[in-house]
């Protein structure tokens, strides 16, 4: 049976679903029986869900304008150079 340490070591592959079915089954069983690992798994899942679900902030208008102006200038420069 895997220990808590084993479970932690495999946690990333477990979360990313890249474990062989045998190992996954053993770890599933460990989580069911071990409240500590269950909490770690649950809160790590939630951690990742928050990070992945958080949309990036809008680019501030002034910065966006500056960026677009730079892009236009670069495009014009290239056209003239050819």
């Amino acid at each position: 049976m895997p220990s808590c340490k084993d479970f932690l070591r495999e946690l990333t592959d477990y979360l990313d679903s890249c474990l062989d079915p045998e190992t996954k089954k053993e770890l599933d069983k460990h989580v069911e029986e071990c409240p500590t690992c269950w909490v770690i798994l649950d809160t790590t899942k939630k951690t990742l869900k928050i990070y992945k679900g958080c949309a990036p902030k809008a680019v501030p208008a002034a910065l966006e304008d500056k960026l677009m102006a730079a892009v236009q200038a670069k495009m014009a420069e290239r056209k003239c150079g050819q």
């Binding site: 946690l11 990333t12 979360l15 790590t44 951690t47």
Partner: peptide, 8 residues
């Protein structure tokens, strides 16, 4: 793994 655990 370590990054995820630290953030958790």
């Amino acid at each position: 793994l370590r990054a995820r655990l630290q953030l958790r």
